[in-house]
Design a protein around this nucleic acid. Sequence first.
DNA 1: CTGAAAGCGCTTACAG
DNA 2: CTGAAAGCGCTTACAG
Lengths: 349, 349
Amino acid sequence: MSQTNPRQPALRTTRTSRATGRVTIVDVARHVGVSPMTISRALKTPERVQQELRIRITEAIAALGYVPNQAASTLASARSQVIAVLVPSLTNSVFIDTLSGIRDYLEQQGYQFLIGETGYTRDKEAQLIATYLAHAPAGFLLSSVAQHEILRGLPACSHLPAVRMFDLGKGHQEMSVGFSQIKAGYAVARHLIERGYRRPGFLAAQLDPRVMKRREGFRKGLLEAGLDPDAEVLLAQPTKVEMGAQLLRQILESTPDCDAVFCCNDDLALGALFECQRRGIDVPQQMAIVGFNDLSWAACATPSITTVITPRYEIGYQAAQLLIQTLKGETIAKPRLDLGFELAAREST
Amino acid sequence: MSQTNPRQPALRTTRTSRATGRVTIVDVARHVGVSPMTISRALKTPERVQQELRIRITEAIAALGYVPNQAASTLASARSQVIAVLVPSLTNSVFIDTLSGIRDYLEQQGYQFLIGETGYTRDKEAQLIATYLAHAPAGFLLSSVAQHEILRGLPACSHLPAVRMFDLGKGHQEMSVGFSQIKAGYAVARHLIERGYRRPGFLAAQLDPRVMKRREGFRKGLLEAGLDPDAEVLLAQPTKVEMGAQLLRQILESTPDCDAVFCCNDDLALGALFECQRRGIDVPQQMAIVGFNDLSWAACATPSITTVITPRYEIGYQAAQLLIQTLKGETIAKPRLDLGFELAAREST
DNA sequence: CTGAAAGCGCTTACAG
DNA sequence: CTGAAAGCGCTTACAG
């Protein structure tokens, strides 16, 4: 250990005992003839390195096939380039679009992301957050209030930035990107009322808080118009197309004079449409159908399905943007982004 | 620096200069009164730590709220707990089920995964593989031949285990989990022929290698039966429901006597069904429709859609299992897992 | 603009 | 079964 000759064989042996064989920043530095620190700078803050040197470093990196070791970087800087994203469900295509938005923004910023599926349960959410903490994520993109609460309750991550997606936060304390679920439900009620339907029902599965807010807005609209809001069938099970058929059968039994249904998502709407076709119920003459989200089939179904177009991709993109801006220490003008929604009136109503 | 008194303030300052405030393995060790090494063992190989000690350590970890630092672990061991998964598309629900399978297995094994969307282009695949290398993934789960080639071409990861999903490898050199796309296409042809259709067409978008293999099998079946295999419309664009309608219109123009269509996936089949309904073409009397994958709507459409049930979840689960077994150094009995498929004959044929 | 030193929090490889 | 030493490959915090 007291030997100082760099060519000393014993030293080499010692250095090699745990060698991984990977090309490191030290190899690049040696190749160029500068210190490792300069390589690090050329990578992170190129403007602080002489241009001529920068070019030689870039060439050396390519020549040696150097790939930075993220683990070393994360350990040394106590900051990772990983964002933890928590969504209730991957099976639900709704969140896939949001993930695409997140990915597109994070990719261009050099960040990676870890996707956690919470399955709509609080235990699972808490467990996932704990797991992800071990990866020292730079921040969180969440999609429920519960997640926010859990995160803030953990001392280890009370400082980590988080953005809530899909619904809007109360005030400016938490960042959020989404739209008003209540207003969307209300808009659907208004649409049906204006088209003259007098006995609209509500069909829902997977009763997460957002679905319940849509219901709240829908009921409000019906009540305001003097209509009975209690024609509804709610099931806690996971949503799938087939369940739309089942829910339609159920509401037809409990409310035989039901003339329109607001399905809490397009999968259910599709199932309801198929069930109407199967029973020879004419849509929209005998039964109007409204979906939610504008998934790919809504516009091209026969008849085309009236639905609420939601800015899913944008929610992901802008939530990611908000998070990265926060990480960079930029000031956030609007920590609460209402991206709105649009009701697409089609043949099914 | 030569000071040895542990309470020496200057030393504390030095130690604190880059302190992250996180609870580390050293804190836990101090709390229990053992060396950090013992804590590490209690976590990784508990059977090598005295039971009484193990319990005290577990308690200390809970009391202090210790979360292991993955970056440090990865750096020290040169092995991460991250698996890189590359799929062509997230929008396609087909891969979502596979991701669920992957997640379920990896989660129980304590692994995380990074998802990359290759978008069916080779450049993107190469770029993603390079990015993921920086995270020192323990292995790869891939879904195309090109990915395998790229990976094996990079010296940095020629040693990393990889499993190919969806189709089967040639020999035993690479690990693969999937089924024969050619046989599946062939089975669809046989089914249509047996039901008496004489002019079946093939509709496809997103012409990836797997789609082309289905086509190959389908054509083989038609040729064997003495039928003309050239009634087909192929589009390179990404697949979506609406395109099914468009493809049906096109084949009706190019092949007016077409009496059945094999759509390369269920999205296209749904769009084709809607188009038939729109035009008043009776399914299956005037036009039979076959899809692929058995997505949720196929069974409950009106009429229900004949399709090929593919073991998507299982493919993900077993591919992950194969990979982890390899990482653990276990011997792999069957590196090439044919999980098969099943043709579900329904009302649309 | 560039570099020498120290440290991030673990695990490896030995010793005992 | 337990521990002291060294090292993984970067970045921080200073110096110059």
